[in-house]
Amino acid sequence: MTAFTSLATAMVKGFLRDRMAVFFTFLFPLMFLVVFGLIFNGGGGDRTGVAVVGDGPVVTALEQAGVLELRRFDDPDAAERQVRDGDLPAAVVVRGHDVGVVYAASDQVASGTVVGIVSGVVDKANLAATGAPPTFSLRARSVEDASLKPIQFLAPGILSWAVSISGVSGAALTLAAWRKKQVLRRIRLAPVGPTTVLSSRVLVSVGTALVQGALFVGVALTPPFGLRLNGQWWLAVPLLVLGTTAFFAIGMLVGAFARTEESANGAANLLVMPMAFLSGSFFPLEDAPAWLRTVSNALPLRHMNDGMLDVLVRGKGVEALLLPSAVLLGFTLVVGFVAAKVFRWED
């Protein structure tokens, strides 16, 4: 084996035998994906529940509308209690021709929806009862819009975050640990150059990022999450590679200053966690203040996120890679250059 491949092999073996490292690289982000995916998907897809007492054409029409999930109660008081307790946003009580709606004052959006739907159904029933033809007609159709289902947003975001944290900590931990244990010194006494050592570590990080991509996207594609890839999703591969090199460079900079693995790990998290929130890896930035969105443009993770979203789920092509690639490449070169300048073989 050449020095390059054997160093890479040694690093892969060391990594795979380190259960904590494997957990934080693969399972921890996967847990984020599963938890966020299930929480947000559940909330978005559910129909609004309504307590219903009584029967008749209005209740049948409500059922057929398919927007509300009717829960039947025999006792009007029991139905109203559901609303008072905050379990349901509204209760519909039908006594003959009298339709009463009780709604929760707190949840104005949900109760407004219920009241609007019920009143629409009642108006329709009234109109049908008169036998008169409708004066106005309504045509409704759906169009595809740019807003995303939570999983469509989460999968690329969490993938970018996972790649950034393992890129930064992978480089920082290896450097700090190898310097502390004098492995770097020992390697320096062998006829191999620093380029060989670093490039083999980069190769391992890139491989890790590709496995992360396949794993997270693979899980997100399964039915409980329902991710749908669009267009040229494979354009994510160059983005994964460039993202890894950029975050690896940042990790090298961290590793140049960290004396122990613990401090390297802490610094990596301190750097990446806020960056992930500011870059919109977990939550969309649309509701964030304008200044914050401006700040986030200076972060490499923001651009990796955007690029991932564009090529994975928004169905954009190579043109969507231009800006993210340029930013990530720029970070790789500039930060990498600084890291090489401050690099130390030993304490």
């Binding site: 073996k13 060391g14 035998r17 380190d18 640990a177 244990k181 492995v183 010194r185």
Partner: peptide
Amino acid sequence: LQASSFFEK
């Protein structure tokens, strides 16, 4: 070297 410098694991 004085420290036993090995690759992890």
